[in-house]
C-alpha cells in the first residue's frame, strides 16, 4: 500500500522528478573536463583493476578466471551500484535547504539520484554493447533475461538508497558507512571473480549476497546466452542454478519494502531533525 502511494506521488510529481534529474545531469557534466567520459571512466578503471587481479591471481586463463566480457559487464553494473548508492544516500542532505523549506514527496530526491545514475549507466551501456563482441561475448535470445536482472538491480539499489538517504538525515556517519560498504563490497561481491570457482557452502555463501546473483545473471544472460531458468555447468563447476534467483528476488523485495516504508515514516521528521 505504501509503495502504491509513493508510486502515485512520483507520477503526480513527475515534472519535478524530471527537473531534478536534468539539473543533476547538467551539473555533473558542466565544467567537467571529460564531460560524458566520466560515465565510462569508472567502469573502465574497475575493469583495468580486474585485469591486473586476473593476471596475478588466475595466471591468465586458469580455471575460474572470468572472461573479459564478463569483467566488462560486471564492472559496468558495479559502477552503477557505486554511483547510485553514493549519490542516492547523499540526495536528501545535499538538498536539505529544499527539504526544510518546500513540500514535495521526499522520495523524489533519492529516486532522482538513481535515475541520474541510470542515464550515466545508459551511456556506459552503449559503449559496453559496442565493445562486447570484441571481448568474446555470445549475444543471443537469452539476453532477454538481461532487462529482468537490470530491473532487479535498479529496484534493489533504490530500496537501499532510500534507506540510506533517510538514515543519513538522522545519523551523519551513514556517509562513511556507505563508503566502507562500497570499498569492501567489491571483494564480497563476484565482480572480479566468478562464484563458479567455489563449491558447496562457499558458493552458497557468495550467492547469498543479493548483488551476486544479479551481477552473475546480467553477465551470463548478455555474454553467454544462457537461459537462467535452467542449470548451467562447466565441468563440475556450477555456473548458474535457478536457486541463485532466491537471494536477489528476496533481497530486493525486502529492501524495497523496508526502504519505502521507513523512508515514508521518517520523512515526517526530516525537516524537524535536521
Amino acid at each position: 500500500m505504501q509503495g502504491l502511494t509513493v508510486v502515485q506521488d512520483l507520477i503526480r510529481y513527475r515534472e519535478l522528478l524530471f527537473q531534478f534529474v536534468r539539473r543533476d545531469i547538467s551539473l555533473r557534466y558542466r565544467q567537467a573536463i571529460m564531460g560524458f567520459g566520466w560515465a565510462i571512466l569508472l567502469p573502465l578503471l574497475t575493469m583495468g583493476a580486474s585485469l591486473v587481479l586476473r593476471a596475478v591471481a588466475f595466471k591468465g586463463g586458469a580455471v575460474g578466471a572470468p572472461p573479459l566480457a564478463a569483467l566488462a559487464v560486471k564492472a559496468w553494473a558495479w559502477g552503477f551500484v557505486a554511483g547510485a548508492l553514493t549519490f542516492g544516500s547523499q540526495s536528501l542532505l545535499s538538498n536539505i535547504s529544499l527539504v526544510t523549506k518546500i513540500y514535495f514527496p521526499r522520495e523524489i530526491l533519492p529516486v532522482a539520484a538513481i535515475l541520474t545514475q541510470c542515464v550515466d549507466g545508459t551511456i556506459g551501456f552503449c559503449v559496453l554493447v559496442i565493445a562486447l563482441p570484441f571481448l568474446g561475448a555470445k549475444l543471443g535470445l537469452a539476453a532477454l533475461w538481461f532487462p529482468v536482472f537490470l530491473l532487479l538491480l535498479v529496484l534493489l539499489v533504490s530500496g537501499l538508497a532510500l534507506l540510506l538517504a533517510a538514515a543519513n538525515i538522522f545519523f551523519r556517519d551513514v556517509k562513511y558507512i556507505v563508503q566502507v560498504f562500497l570499498t569492501f563490497g567489491i571483494f564480497f561481491t563476484p565482480v572480479v571473480y566468478d562464484p563458479s570457482s567455489f563449491h558447496g557452502l562457499a558458493r552458497a555463501a557468495v550467492m547469498a549476497n543479493p548483488f551476486a546473483g544479479i551481477l552473475v545473471g546480467l553477465d551470463l544472460a548478455l555474454t553467454r546466452n544462457m537461459n537462467l531458468a535452467a542449470t548451467h555447468m562447466a565441468g563440475t563447476r556450477i555456473l548458474w542454478q535457478p536457486t541463485d534467483l532466491i537471494a536477489p528476488v528476496l533481497g530486493t523485495a525486502i529492501l524495497l519494502v523496508a526502504g519505502l516504508g521507513l523512508f515514508r515514516r521518517g520523512s515526517a521528521w526530516f525537516a524537524e531533525v535536521y
Binding site: E15, L16, F18, Q19, F20, R22, R23, L98, I102, F104
Partner: peptide
C-alpha cells in the same frame, strides 16, 4: 527548476 518545485508544468 523552481517552477517545477512550485508545482508548475513545463
Amino acid at each position: 527548476l523552481q517552477g517545477a518545485i512550485m508545482g508548475m508544468k513545463r
